[in-house]
Simulated assay, not measured.
Amino acid sequence: MEREELAAWLRLAWAPGLGRTTARRLLAAFGLPQAVFAQDTTAIEQATSAAVPPLLRERPAGLDALTNATLDWLAQAPAGQSRRVLTLADPLYPASLLQTEDPPLVLYAAGQPVDAWPRAIAIVGSRNPTAQGRIDAREFARSFARSGLTVVSGLALGIDGAAHEGALDGAADGQLATIAIVGTGLDRVYPQQHHDLAHRIASRGLLLSEYPVGTPPLSDNFPQRNRIISGLASGTLVVEAAVRSGSLITARLAAEQGKDVYAIPGSIHSPQSRGCHALLKQGAKLVETAEDVLEDMEAPVRAPTRPTPREDVPLLQAMGHAPLSLDALVARTGTSAADLQAQLLELELQGRVARLAGGLFQRLERA
């Protein structure tokens, strides 16, 4: 993309007060941004309203610096990776996003080159999941990737990170394993704890953002990116979520876009399960295994790699699957608290029990 064309797209996308809807109306009326800015006041008013011409008249402050920074970012792609600015006019712009109500005017992409967008499934959930929720997200994502689906998520802590990790583990060589939709410019990583994960995604997947380079992690940006997560995917799986959460926003957007919404049920005592239960009451599809989703999406189901069966442990049988306290275990098993603590510690080290907040314990299972 030539400098002037890039500058025109950036100017249209970030004209103060203009908004994406009005910008798309202008593009529909006049074509490329350079043609938009060449129109006279009368033509602009006829296509939109009298309030729009003044918004287009002045170049936004910092446009030249942003254009230079974007060109520099594009030129500094690491070896083996690609960086692109995808506009609504680009033939490689994701077709699934074009079919949504509010597609971004500009997308920044970093990672593996994409000639055709793969079929994808979104996985979203709590930033503070239970240990079981984290395992479920990773195992479902691994199974989806092994069956050829690309996993889309938001690079947040918790379920998002586990989903990206699972997809990277399960994807074949050369497969676009996962796509991370972020709420910052692609010249930075947020949260910082996912710095290494972001670099792994860039090497085997893709990072996408509608925000220009230099954009910091602003709170208003993250709910906005949810429409891209749901828009890129054929369906959205919610692993764990509170009743009020960004994950439920993503699920609602997916439903409004005509996409399937899936939810994993959980304990009625877990706050992280209440959002999923609310979705199920609203008509989301209940899933217990990755195969449930794959069969529903008519994706090829590859036989999962089953873990070697482990010997039955009476304490695990007594625990069941809901979180419970040490006192409850004492009452349930008749074993002393000291003996139970020793057994629980051993099982925790084996990754078969998780210690939760509030002195609770939970049995863990592979999805």
Rank of each mutant, 00 (worst) to 15 (best):
Val353Phe: 04
His269Gln: 12
Pro307Gly: 12
Leu207Arg: 01
Ala162Ser: 12
Leu280Asp: 05
Ser325His: 06
Thr289Val: 11
Gly133Ser: 11
Leu88Met: 14
Ala162Met: 08
Leu208Ala: 05
Ala65Leu: 14
Pro216Ser: 10
Phe30Arg: 04
Gly31Leu: 14
Ala284Val: 08
Cys276Met: 09
Arg352Leu: 11
Ala23Gln: 13
Asp102Glu: 09
Asn226Thr: 08
Ala8Gln: 05
Thr236Glu: 01
Gln341Thr: 14
Arg25Ser: 13
Pro217Gly: 09
Met1Asp: 01
Ile249Ser: 03
Ser209Val: 15
Ala69Gln: 14
Ser203Gln: 15
Ala35Lys: 13
Ala263Gln: 00
Arg25Gly: 05
Arg3Trp: 02
Ala50Trp: 13
Leu206Ile: 09
Phe140His: 02
Gly31Ala: 12
Leu324Pro: 00
Leu326Met: 14
Leu92Val: 04
Leu71Lys: 06
Gly148Glu: 10
Phe361Arg: 07
Asp169Phe: 10
Leu294Gln: 01
Arg3Gly: 05
Ser325Trp: 08
Gly205Phe: 08
Thr305Lys: 11
Gly148Phe: 03
Ala7Asp: 10
Pro94Trp: 03
Gly258Gln: 00
Ala131Arg: 01
Pro216Trp: 02
Ala255Arg: 11
Gln317Arg: 07
Thr305Pro: 06
Ala233Ile: 09
Asp339Lys: 08
Ala137Cys: 07
Ala263Lys: 02
Asp136Ile: 04
Pro323Glu: 08
Glu346Leu: 09
Arg138Asp: 10
Pro33Cys: 14
Arg244Asp: 12
Asp102Cys: 05
His269Ala: 14
Glu365His: 07
Ser153Met: 07
Arg332Val: 04
Gly320Ile: 05
Thr48Ser: 15
Met319Arg: 02
Leu157Met: 15
Ala254Cys: 12
Gly19Cys: 10
Asp173Pro: 15
Ile228Gly: 03
Ala8Ser: 13
Val261Ser: 06
Leu92His: 08
Leu155Tyr: 03
Gln112Asp: 04
Thr22Leu: 09
Arg204Asp: 05
Val85Ile: 07
Gln46Cys: 09
Gln317Pro: 04
Leu349Ala: 07
Ala290Val: 02
Ala145Pro: 10
Ile268Asn: 14
Leu360Cys: 02
Ile249Gln: 02
Ser234Gly: 13
Arg244Gln: 13
Leu248Phe: 03
Leu206Glu: 03
Gly133Glu: 02
Thr215Cys: 02
Ala337His: 10
Glu4Ala: 14
Ala141Val: 10
Leu206Gln: 04
Ser273Gln: 07
Thr333His: 13
Val189Leu: 01
Gln193Val: 12
Ala299Asp: 04
Val114Gln: 00
Gly183Asn: 02
Ala75Phe: 07
Val301Thr: 13
Asp136Trp: 06
Asp312Leu: 12
Leu253His: 13
Arg306Trp: 12
Glu291Pro: 15
Ala89Thr: 07
Ala122Glu: 01
Arg188Ala: 14
Asp173Tyr: 12
Ala141His: 03
Leu32Asp: 10
Pro271Ile: 05
Ala177Glu: 09
Asp90Gly: 08
Gln46Ile: 04
Arg57His: 15
Leu208Pro: 10
Arg363Tyr: 04
Asp72Gly: 10
Leu253Glu: 03
Ser143His: 06
